[in-house]
Amino acid sequence: MKDGAHRRRLPAAIAELMRWGTIIGSILVGAATVGTTVNASWAVPVAVADVSVFVMLPVIRVVMMLAAYASAMDVLYVWITTALLVLLAAATVVGLLVS
C-alpha cells in the first residue's frame, strides 16, 4: 500500500522539483546575462548561482528518490540510490583531481 502510494507521488514530486528548479535557474540565467551586458558587479555571482542550480537539480532528484525508497522500506533501491550518490561524488572528486 505504502509502496503503491510512493510510486504515484514520487514522479509528481520530481516533476515539480524539475519545473520550479528550471524556472528559478532560467530567471537567474536571464539576470546574469543582463548583468554581464551592463557590467554589473553582481553578474558573476548570479551566473555561478544559475549554473549551480542546474548542476544540483539531478542530485536533489536522486536524494528525493532515496528518501522515497527509504520511507517505503525498499531496501534494494535504497542501496541503489545510495550507490548512485556515492558514484556522483566520486565523479566530482576525480574530476577535481584530474582536471
Binding site: 554581464t36 548542476v55 574530476g95
Partner: peptide
C-alpha cells in the same frame, strides 16, 4: 552532473557563454 560539478568548482565553465546556451 558529476563532471559538470567538477568543471564548475574549478572555474572551467565559461559563464558568459553558458548563459545564452542554457537559456
Amino acid at each position: 552532473t558529476g563532471t559538470a560539478a567538477a568543471y564548475l568548482i574549478l572555474g572551467k565553465v565559461d559563464l558568459v557563454l553558458a548563459g545564452p546556451v542554457v537559456l
